[in-house]
Design a protein around this nucleic acid. Structure first.
Lengths: 217, 217
DNA sequence: ATCACTAATGGACGATCGTCCATTAATTGT
DNA sequence: ACAATTAATGGACGATCGTCCATTAGTGAT
């Protein structure tokens, strides 16, 4: 912990000029993700990445120890950014109904800021190579612990109100995530024909079947 | 059309020995898919493919005109095989109830013969590169026309029985496919923890919410 | 101003990439 | 038996891959 870290944000970002390892690392990560989104993961080479980042050839080995590590770190950061934005968008007040909290997750996941051409391409690219890159596989699952438990808690509360068969909240959680997964695939496959609103409505219709009286629109 | 083509199957497959373009093409396609499943699409090179097929270097260019074309043909054939097997498994008698026909699709899609380590890895690998390979994108959608209309027809019949809001059958169709999509992702992500039976049950629970009285187990 | 230190550069390296083609081998037709 | 035809081979090719390191340049301390 240096003294720099205690300064306010504006001053901390001063160096900016020639020497700034952290900024360079970040530039490489961003360049990696942008390259994947633009030309695909198979054509994302060290040359393409450093070219886009405007840096020199040795930087990847210097800062990450190799291309594979850079890819893994990029996947990790991409995943973290998704969940950070998801948190930001689902941070309702303490009095929000469980129904509203579920709806917030669905609408966030299908919103422009999370579901867009760039993110979908990157997400599916990483998932496509995940089975042969164990390090990346860890960040290509939808089953993020916190997201699951957010949904689970909300469905648990809804379950208490009525009388439901066993595992109802658990199935509702898994099913909602699966439906969202399917919507992302639909978006990747046909961006022009995709409608966020219709997708939300569709998921709500399924949920209102599970919890009669709720999720009606 | 040579005389060979008129001979019975057993005799037609005779050549088998040194010269057999069709068999060699097929061997290359199979080797391609196997390689993708085993070491991932990024490491699937011409060398790895011909090595696995036990053929010589020039074959890919000779029979397919290049690696990209081979990849596209492999994706196409993989997709066709999926739908052929799906057809085979959902070919119920003419008196099957709509409910049974929907169930047959779900159980087929989640069966060992369609959903297994090899097929999931290949499927997601192709989808991951689909945005940068337009030729492959055509075969990486779940929205196969015939499968959609099979489900759609069954849900239409179920819809007639009761009284439902507009677009009910359409939403049931999209939602079912989305749920299946999500189940494939779950399988890819965690094969050991995946249960086909629980997955079928989960989808049925969602569908019985949509069509009260049906899909109960 | 000088020094020690580390960020950053960019070219060299061997390996592998995908394509192509001159050659060889197998088959067919006469 | 002898062309004619076509399948198949396997090495050569230039391009590009990812890694590595000797060198240069910027920074902060004295």
């Amino acid at each position: 912990m240096t003294i720099k870290d205690k300064l306010p944000e504006e001053l901390r970002e001063k160096p900016a000029s020639k020497r700034d390892p952290a900024a360079k690392k970040q530039a490489l990560i961003k360049a990696t993700l942008d390259t994947i989104a633009e030309i695909g993961i198979t054509d994302t080479s060290v040359s393409r990445i450093i070219e886009r980042a405007g840096l020199s050839r040795g930087m990847i080995h210097l800062h990450f120890g190799g291309k594979d590590n850079l890819l893994t770190v990029a996947a990790q950061q991409f995943s973290e950014q998704y969940y950070a934005e998801m948190d930001r968008m689902t941070d309702l007040g303490p009095n929000a109904s469980p129904e509203d909290r579920v709806l917030a997750v669905i609408e966030a996941d299908l919103s422009e800021s999370l579901l867009n051409p760039r993110s979908t391409k990157i997400w599916h690219a990483f998932r496509g190579i995940s089975s042969s890159h164990p390090g990346i596989a860890r960040y290509s699952s939808t089953q993020d612990e916190r997201l699951v438990s957010t949904l689970r808690q909300a469905f648990d509360e809804l379950e208490k109100v009525g009388c439901y068969p066993p595992n109802h909240a658990e199935d509702a959680t898994s099913g909602t995530l699966a439906l969202l997964e399917g919507m992302w695939v639909n978006y990747l496959t046909d961006m022009a024909g995709f409608s966020r609103e219709r997708s939300v409505d569709l998921i709500c219709r399924f949920l209102s079947g599970l919890f009669p009286g709720s999720f009606l629109r």
